[in-house]
Each structure stands twice: as structure tokens, then as C-alpha cells.
Write a protein that binds this DNA or RNA. Sequence first.
DNA 1: CCCGGATGAAGTGTCGACACTTCAAGCAGA
DNA 2: TCTGCTTGAAGTGTCGACACTTCATCCGGG
Lengths: 260, 260
Amino acid sequence: MVTAKAPPTPGGPGPLRDVPATARLPVAEAARRLEITRTFGRGTSVPSIADEIALAVATEIIEGRLSPGDDLNSVDLARSFHSSRTPVREALLVLEREGFVEITARRRPRVARLLLREVRELYNLRAELYSVVSRTVVQVATEADLETLRGHQRALEAAAADGDVDRYFWVNVQFRNTEADITRDATLRRVLDSLGLRALQLRHLSLAQPGRLEPSLHDHARLLKAYEDRDAELASALTQSLVRAGYAAIERSGWTGEEP
Amino acid sequence: MVTAKAPPTPGGPGPLRDVPATARLPVAEAARRLEITRTFGRGTSVPSIADEIALAVATEIIEGRLSPGDDLNSVDLARSFHSSRTPVREALLVLEREGFVEITARRRPRVARLLLREVRELYNLRAELYSVVSRTVVQVATEADLETLRGHQRALEAAAADGDVDRYFWVNVQFRNTEADITRDATLRRVLDSLGLRALQLRHLSLAQPGRLEPSLHDHARLLKAYEDRDAELASALTQSLVRAGYAAIERSGWTGEEP
DNA sequence: CCCGGATGAAGTGTCGACACTTCAAGCAGA
DNA sequence: TCTGCTTGAAGTGTCGACACTTCATCCGGG
């Protein structure tokens, strides 16, 4: 999409100039796009230009090619995407609601800064909400649901065995998504999607910390067992522990969100 | 604002045509506007036209002058507000993110339908989140914070004594807001604001059920006591009970969200 | 050498226009 | 009477333009 929409852009040395060239592991790339699309696409078969721009810019931010504080003026963006400023503004508004962009009236939008304080809040909330999710999963999960989770678990083990952090990361995201789906609670799901997307970059950073995969994998196994045993309290506690371990890893990594 | 922006509107018999005439209790009106503004205004001293439209339309929806399914086409809205369609579309997008409006590509936006199922989800989530809030309040509330809450409690008692449901309702909203503020957690606050706004109309319906004020007042008193005693578990349980009682009242009222 | 106002370039918010899509009414045929 | 096609009116998504604001740079007075 990005490739199709903003290929030449010879005129503008904006932050998005070399988007298409940056290639990644295809699997991770696809998963990533899917994850981000769910929040930004309006499920339509023909996404509006605005949707595509929101998706593309969000991806840039999450993958770190756009840094906090970077200028996101609508003129340059419009040039990059060969569109007018109207859909760009629309995209920026959506990104603002999701917390990716800071818009001050009459001033240029900027990529939002994510302070450690906010990250803590984000993870706290995620911990609480996933704790609710886990309790609900225990109550309502069918055998088929559990089998899906077992599949993810096996994939986690395989990725961990290969030491493939990237794959582990994305399967982990899927695991969490499946849990959320099992609750069949659209409201909860939407809030989690929003928080999860915002935290996506951090989550990767977190799992990439040395020695994180082993305990995470172990806890997932125990969580799955708790689901099978219909042990709500244990499941809830394990989930909280998993999320909070994620935050702890970020803190340990020395990440602060400040400029160097 | 509405009054200033859309006074004559002789041409369009749109749903917003008689907005300014509808007068309410001034206090309630002011409180309501404040509540809604917090989510929709971008804190600026000079709100953009889009902000004003979002605020006005959200108010119409919450106060029930716009009903689920009502047409919100941007042409009529633009006429109503004497603006072009650009700020209208912006406002509609914001309202969509908040769940007030359903936008399908290439089709006319409509006022979102709120099914009983979603209301249940909404209240469930609010119950869980306010439970977190209560636990946090127990941990971090200063004496000044508690005093503010006591003030609200006294106002609740006064309103209940007068049998003034409207006033009770708005003080109740303030009480919840104060609790949320005490946590000093902006992320949590934002999510709660969003959910709370969506539920605003229902909350009023809920408290207006006969025999609701007494138990609610009683539980608030006990909640305050739990805060003073720093009893996290009790406070959390009471809060959950309060919110869930709200949902129960809605169910009992026979409200379904369906058209008659 | 520093401060503060002037000045031009750049960007924002809003507008009206236009091509394309959706919707509803009317009409023809069974 | 009902069905399905045609057709015009109405609405959406996007565009380029314009007035006003913000920002950076330059310049002259201290």
C-alpha cells in the first residue's frame, strides 16, 4: 500500500521518503500490517485514502522510522501520498485519537512523545484488563478456543527454541488477541486494541531483552494449564504477572522515552 | 455555542433545527456541557468549528434529541452550522471514534444504535475499571482528596433529600470524575471518560428508576468510609456494586435499545 | 554581542467545486 | 399486484484555493 501510494516522491525530503525500500521479514511484516489494520481500517474492501495514510504513518511510528517529536505537517504528507491535504488531516485526527500524534490547534502535528510515566500507565491498565480477560476466558472458553490457544503455545515454543524473537513476539500478540476474542466482548476488545497498538513498539523492545523468552514461555504454559483447569484466579494472576514482567523489562532496558 | 452557530437555519428541516430553543435547568446544562467538552474540546481557548460541531451533535445524541438510526449527512449538518462540509466530516469522525456515530464508507453516517449487549459490556468494563480506581484511591488519596469527595457526598445527600434526580445525577458524575482524578492516571482517565460519555444517557435513565437514589446514596457513604479506612477490597467491591446496580436498573427499566 | 521587532516563507483551517456512488421514485413488463 | 430496470436527485470523498497564523530569519538599536 505504501509502496503503491508513495513511490517516487522526488520533491519532498520528508520523514516518509524511503518507506517502500525498507524490507522486513515477510511474515512479521504481514502480521504487523494485519494488527495495525484492524484498528485503522474501516473494514471496507476499498479503504479510503485517509485509512491508508493512517495505517502507513502508524506503521512508521510503531516501527521507529518516525521518532517522537518529528514533524508531521499535512503539506509534506500530502505530497508523499500524492493526495490532497483533506485525507491527510483525517488520518492525523485518527492517529491523534489513538495517541500516536499530538495536535495543537494551528500548529504542526508531531509524533507523540511516550513518557515512561505513560508507559507505566499503559501497562498497568493492560495488566488489569487482561486479568479480566483471563477470568472471562476461564468462564466461557470452548474446547475449540483452548485448542487455538494450544496452537499458539506450540508456535511460541518453536519460536523460542529457534531463538527467533521476532516470531515469538508476533505469536505472542496473536495469543493475546485470541484471548480477547474468546471473551466475545467487543467493547473490551476495542479498548485493548487501542492500548495494545500504542504499546506495540515497547512490547517488542520488552521481549527482546535477554533472558525474557524463557520465563515468558513458561508462564504461557502455566496460563494455558490454568485455562484448562478452569482456575480463574491463577489465570488472572499469571496474566497480570506476564504483562507486568513486560513493563519491568522495559524499565530494565533503560528506555525512558527522552531524546538522547 | 449551538445558539450562536445555528440560529436561523430556515432551509433545513434537519434533526438539529430547534436545538437552541430547548432550555434546561441551567446548572445541569452547564455541568453537562463541561462533561462533554472535556472529551471533545481540544483544550484550546479558540475551539475549531469542528470541535463545536462534535460537541453539539454529541450533546444532541446524549440528550436524546437525536435518536439511533437518525441520518447525519454532512450536507445538512453543514447547513445547520453555517459551515462547509470539511469541519463537519472531522466532527463526525471524532464522534465515530467515541462510538456515537456509525460511518460506513460511501454511505450516510447515522447515529449509532446502542444494543443492550453493548450496554452490558460498557457497564462491565466500567465496573472493572472503577474497581481499579477505588483500589488506587485507597492507596494514594490525600486528606484534601477525601475532603473533596466528602463535599460531593454532602451534595448527594442534599439532592437526594430534595428528591432532585437531575442534580443527584450530575453530582454523581462529579464524584466519579473526582475519583478518577485522584488516581493521577491520564491513560485510565481517558478510557473512563470515553466509556462514561457513551453511557451518559443510560446513567441518567438508570438513576431515574424509582427507589434507586436511596441505596446509591447509602453505598456512596459506605464507599467514602472505606476510603477513609483505607480498605481497598471493600472500596473496590462497593464501587463494582454501585456500577452493576446501575446496569441492573437499566435492565429493569425495560430499555432495550430497539426501536418501538 | 545580544535583544526584539519586522518580514517573508511555510502551514493550518476552512471553503466551494466536481466526479462518482448511493438511494428512491417512477415506469415497463409480466 | 408485484418485480426489476431506469433515471434523477442527493450525498460522499477528494481536490485546489485562499485568508490567517505560526515560525524562522534577518536586521538595526542598544
